[in-house]
C-alpha cells in the first residue's frame, strides 16, 4: 500500500513499537543474558563471577549431562520415528473416512487439549505397579515376568516417561496432516482411483509426496517439543531416579531452581537453544535436498 513517505514512522510507532520493545527486551535481550550467565558462576544473589567456558568444558566429562543429553536426543529420534508416520497414517485414515469421521476426529484430538500436567498425573496412575492397567494387562496376557515398578526402575523409566508425551501429542500431528490432505485437490485422488490405484498406493505415491511441506512442519514441531520437554518427566518422576528419566529441560530446572546454580543452568539452556536450532535446520535441509 502506498503511504506518503514522511508519515511512515507514525504507524510504526503506534502499531509496532509497544510489541517490539517488550519482545526485544524480554526475549532477544534475555537470550543474551542467558549466554552471559552461562559464562559465570552465580547464585542469583551475589555478583556473578566470570568463569569462561568452564561449564561447557565440564559437560564434556559430566556423566549426568551425558545421560540427559542422550535421553533428549533419543527422545527426538524416537518421537520422529513414531509420531511422523503415525500422523501421516492417522491423517490419511481420517481423510478417507466418511462415516463417524467427526467422532473419530473429536476423540483422537482429546489429549492435545488437556494440560500436560493432567496427562502426566494420569499416567502416574496408569503405570502404578500394583493397580495400574499396564501391569494388569501384562499379567492377564501371561507376561507377568515383564511387569515392572515402571516409575522407579532405572532401566525402563525413560521409555515410560515418553509414553504420555506420545499419547498427548500424536493427535496434533494427525490433525495437522489431515488439514493438509484436505487441501489436496479431489481430482488427483479421483483420477488415481480410476486408474485402479489401491488405497495404499494412493497414500504412498500421491499423498505422502504432496504432504512433504506439512511433514517437515510436524518434524520441526516435534524436535522443538522434545528439546524443551519438561512437564511429563518432572511430574511423573521428578526426572529420576537420579537423572535417568530427565531431559535437558528437567536437568536445567533442577540445576538452576533446585540447586541454585544459575550459571550452569544457563549453560544447559544455551545447549537446549543451540540443539533446537541445529536440529531444526538439519531437518529442513534434509527435506529440501530430497526435492
Amino acid at each position: 500500500m502506498r503511504v506518503a513517505k514522511k508519515k511512515r514512522w507514525i504507524p510504526f510507532v503506534v502499531f509496532v513499537v509497544p510489541a517490539l520493545l517488550v519482545y526485544t527486551y524480554f526475549i532477544i535481550y534475555s537470550i543474551g543474558n542467558t549466554g552471559y550467565y552461562s559464562l559465570t558462576q552465580w547464585n542469583a544473589i551475589s555478583e556473578p563471577k566470570y568463569v569462561g567456558m568452564k561449564y561447557y568444558m565440564d559437560f564434556l566429562k559430566d556423566k549426568d549431562f551425558h545421560m540427559v543429553l542422550r535421553n533428549s536426543l533419543l527422545n527426538v529420534v524416537i518421537s520422529l520415528i513414531v509420531q511422523v508416520p503415525a500422523g501421516l497414517i492417522g491423517g490419511y485414515l481420517l481423510y478417507r473416512t466418511r462415516r463417524f469421521y467427526k467422532l473419530y476426529r473429536f476423540l483422537i484430538f482429546i489429549p492435545v487439549v488437556l494440560s500436560a500436567s493432567a496427562v502426566a498425573l494420569l499416567f502416574t496412575l496408569i503405570f502404578h505397579a500394583e493397580f495400574g492397567p499396564v501391569n494388569a494387562l501384562l499379567d492377564w496376557a501371561g507376561l507377568s515376568h515383564l511387569t515392572h515398578s515402571w516409575l522407579s526402575d532405572v532401566k525402563v523409566v525413560f521409555y515410560v516417561v515418553m509414553i504420555p508425551m506420545t499419547y498427548q501429542y500424536i493427535g496434533l500431528y494427525v490433525i495437522i496432516q489431515l488439514s493438509g490432505m484436505q487441501s489436496i485437490s479431489e481430482d488427483v485422488i479421483e483420477s488415481a482411483t480410476i486408474d485402479g490405484a489401491s488405497s495404499f498406493r494412493i497414500f504412498w505415491n500421491v499423498v505422502v509426496p504432496m504432504q512433504k511441506g506439512v511433514t517437515m512442519m510436524c518434524s520441526v514441531l516435534i524436535i522443538s517439543g522434545c528439546f524443551k520437554a519438561f512437564e511429563h518427566s518432572y511430574i511423573m518422576t521428578w526426572g529420576g531416579p537420579g537423572y535417568s528419566s530427565s531431559f535437558l529441560g528437567v536437568y536445567m530446572y533442577m540445576e538452576t531452581f533446585v540447586k541454585g546454580n544459575y550459571g550452569k543452568g544457563s549453560a544447559i539452556a544455551m545447549i537446549i537453544l543451540v540443539g533446537t536450532l541445529a536440529c531444526t535446520m538439519a531437518v529442513q535441509r534434509i527435506f529440501r535436498e530430497e526435492e
Binding site: 500500500m1 503511504v3 511512515r8 504507524p11 510504526f12 502499531f15 509496532v16 510489541a19 517490539l20 519482545y23 524480554f26 526475549i27 532477544i28 535481550y29 534475555s30 537470550i31 543474558n33 542467558t34 550467565y37 542469583a44 522443538s224 528439546f227 524443551k228 519438561f230 535437558l248 529441560g249 536445567m252 530446572y253 538452576t256 544459575y262 543452568g265 544457563s266 544447559i268 539452556a269 544455551m270 537446549i272 537453544l273 533446537t276 536450532l277 531444526t280
Partner: peptide, 28 residues
C-alpha cells in the same frame, strides 16, 4: 505497511526460542 520482511522475520524468530533459554533472565 512494512517494507521488506526483516521485521517480520525478527518477530517470528521468537517462535523458535525454547522457554528455558529465557527463563533465568525473566526470573531475574
Amino acid at each position: 505497511y512494512a517494507r521488506g520482511k526483516l521485521l517480520y522475520m525478527y518477530f517470528i524468530l521468537g517462535m523458535m526460542i525454547p522457554v528455558q533459554a529465557i527463563a533465568i533472565p525473566m526470573f531475574v
